[in-house]
Amino acid sequence: MLYSEKVMDHFRNPRNVGEIPDADGIGEVGNAKCGDIMKMYLKIDDGVVTDAKFETFGCGSAIATSSMATELIKGKPLSEALTLTNKAVVEALDGLPAHKLHCSVLAEEAVKAAVKDYYDKNNIPYDATQFCDHDCENCSLEH
């Protein structure tokens, strides 16, 4: 099989699909030309991610990594959600084929983009270097 049972489970029964209409932070990454877009919605209360939902256009692993990422950050403090790495998403899914690892990077970036959106909307100061600026050639983030 191309995918692990965990990946197939999260693909077939994705957790937290949909939109949060009054989301506090929304992050969208990827582009349709490349074949995957992830949109992450976060509800944040008192520095804690109280709800997370996603919408994804993409392949099986794009859907599964989005689903797993929302599961991994729900109920966690923002500081912890920000430390979510693509590797953690891959491990939680029992691995991904090498050519699908970029999906897990997108999932990590979608979470971060949503948190950044929350910070920006609420004028909360943050360290900009921890967010992807989509300058892949000079990337210092370990993903």
């Binding site: 197939m8 077939r12 256009f57 099986g60």
Partner: peptide
């Protein structure tokens, strides 16, 4: 329009 082929194939396989 609006969907990706691999996920379509996997669900058809199901």
């Amino acid at each position: 329009e609006g969907i990706e082929g691999e996920s379509l194939l996997l669900l058809l396989d199901d």
